[in-house]
Nucleic acid binder design. Sequence first.
DNA 1: ATGCCTAATGCAATTAGA
Length: 265
Amino acid sequence: MKIATYNVNGVNGRLPVLLRWLAESQPDVAVLQELKAPQDKFPEAAVRDLGYDAIWHGQKSWNGVAMLSRVGEIHETRRGLPGDPDDTQSRYIEAAVNGILIGGLYMPNGNPRPGPKFEYKMTWFEKLIEHAAGLLESKLPVMLAGDFNVMPTERDVHKPERWLEDALFAPEVREAFFRLTGQGWTDALRTIHPDETIYTFFDYFRNAYARNAGLRIDHLLLSPALADRLVDAQVDRDVRGWEKTSDHAPVWIELADKPKLRSRA
DNA sequence: ATGCCTAATGCAATTAGA
């Protein structure tokens, strides 16, 4: 089972890229971020033509998240994180698909730091951490996938010294990320590529993609039961080089149907 | 320190992204 996350940076503006990627990469499930489209402007027919069911939480101009599946019905469990009913930003959607509970998320960027946007990011992060703890306690096979807007380590950012004060790399943001993963989540891409320089985002500025001057900010975090099924994780890096493409590249994992045999210490 | 690019809105220039 192949599950992907992709920040599309405008689902309608990038629709040809999204459809080409779906056709070529053939994920079974995909979570999307930054739809930048109101609820009634999601291209449902276009993705359905490729065999995908979809749920989405739109918003005019900004944010917006979706989940696509070609492996069975999407049983939505929630949209929006618990704890802030007044939050109007569409950043979280969660559903059970093919026996896996999947939370698709778009973490606030948080810049400039300090400031109200950064405070909003940290508040949102704390709500995510609290909700994630409950997901793990459920003992269900569960994953959190999306644009976390966090580079966890220096290995995940080109020229880390330039990002120390940035809302994507500041100490308290990375601390929050490791507090989250410390609950028992496995960072799938880093597990498969422990020492590799591997990025999921490349700025439109300064020819960043060609220079491989990127960031690793799109993550798939796996509960223990799913981590035992992880067989591969990759970035569809070439997609970032297509015409009229997003500034993010898709990231995907392959899960075995049954747990892999593990060597024991 | 800022612009470099790009989308949405809406038709100019602003907001936001990371």
